[in-house]
């Protein structure tokens, strides 16, 4: 009696279908964006108004800025859950500084300090994350969970849990200014994306970042300073989160440590993944992350503008992530 086993022949799709699928995977983000815009034109009242564009740009800028940093961290094979808390911390510090006796006495200096000190604090958070991950070798998800929990707590302690309102036109320019008629933070997000894109594609740091995510052992054996590069990724990510935190405070002319950047880590991760970042690392599509942020924002807006409840909007966001991850799984083969 023979027990020869026949091997199951894998189901093969027709070449045309396969090619269409590949194209969809490569340009999935743009297709999704196009579909979203068309759907909105069809169903959302007043979608083709300038005001709609302004609202969306000012909302998407913070997601995009954080997602750019998140993309760098994800490219090393890590993740940063603390970005939302870092936003809250940076955002809480700024008004504290320019409302302080020093800031009132020297408005110009106070303004400069209100930009730089929060950013330095944010980057210190990044140093902490980088230290946990690359020196103590803690799993990134656990390492950044520490600041995810405590960062917002620190911010709330600093402000006694109060909403801090202020009126400082110079500072508010960050969130309400216009260049060529479009919101300042939109331009800022684009400029930052360009800068980080240059960093990734043209510098030693960027090449090392991708090598570490692609094959950390091989990178180390090739003399790549793995620790320093990981530090760099977490510090840049936290710094960008700090900028986003300042923008949110500037938009509202108020700092609410409890809400600033709340759930931002999820939006940023979603945007990065939709944009084509691989969670196991090795890829850093910066403008993909910007596109991902736009898609996430448009979905939110679409649901909101059509009266869908927030809770349902969350489900829709989850669905987008599932689709993006599925398409990626195929792309990896």
């Amino acid at each position: 009696m023979s027990t020869r086993l026949e091997s199951a022949s894998p189901a093969t799709a027709s070449p045309a279908t396969a090619r269409a699928l590949r194209q969809l995977r490569r340009h999935g983000g743009l297709v999704a964006l196009l579909v979203l815009v068309l759907v909105n034109i069809a169903i959302t009242p007043n979608f083709l108004q300038l005001q709609t564009l302004f609202v969306n740009i000012s909302q998407v800028a913070t997601i995009a800025i954080v997602a750019i940093g998140m993309t760098l961290v994800i490219a090393t094979g890590g993740i940063d859950l603390s970005v939302g808390a870092v936003m809250a911390l940076a955002g809480a510090l700024a008004p504290l500084i320019f409302l302080s006796p020093f800031g009132v006495a020297y408005p110009a200096l106070g303004l400069v300090a209100a930009f730089t000190l929060p950013l330095l604090a944010a980057m210190a958070c990044g140093l902490f994350n980088g230290f946990m991950v690359s020196v103590l070798r803690v799993q990134p998800i656990i390492a950044t969970l520490i600041l995810f929990i405590s960062g917002r707590g620190i911010a709330q302690v600093l402000t006694n849990g109060n909403l801090q309102t202020f009126s400082n036109p110079s500072f508010s320019y960050l969130g309400t200014g216009r260049i060529l008629g479009l919101p300042f933070q939109g331009w800022l997000a684009l400029a930052l994306a360009g800068l980080v894109y240059w960093l990734v594609t043209r510098t030693l740091f960027g090449r090392y970042l991708l090598a570490i995510g692609g094959n950390e052992r091989a990178a180390r054996l090739s003399g790549v300073p793995v620790r320093r590069v990981k530090f760099g990724a977490y510090v840049i990510c936290a710094g960008l989160a700090g900028i986003a935190g300042l923008i949110v405070v500037a938009i509202n002319s108020a700092s609410d440590a409890g809400r600033n950047g709340n759930l931002m880590e999820l939006d940023a991760i979603a945007a990065a993944v939709v944009g084509g970042a691989l969670l196991q690392g090795g890829r850093a599509p910066i403008f993909g992350a910007v596109l991902g942020a736009v898609i996430i924002q448009l979905v939110k807006y679409t649901l909101l503008a059509n009266g869908v409840e927030d809770e349902v909007a969350l489900i829709a966001k989850a669905f987008i992530i599932v689709v993006a991850v599925y398409l990626q799984a195929g792309r990896r083969e």
Partner: peptide, 28 residues
Amino acid sequence: AEGIVPEMSVRENVTLAVLPKLSRGGRI
């Protein structure tokens, strides 16, 4: 496991170890 970085190009793999010599001020 210890040699190639699969997602990277032939060019990037070849120059991985010599990169510091090919860059100036951090720019490749």
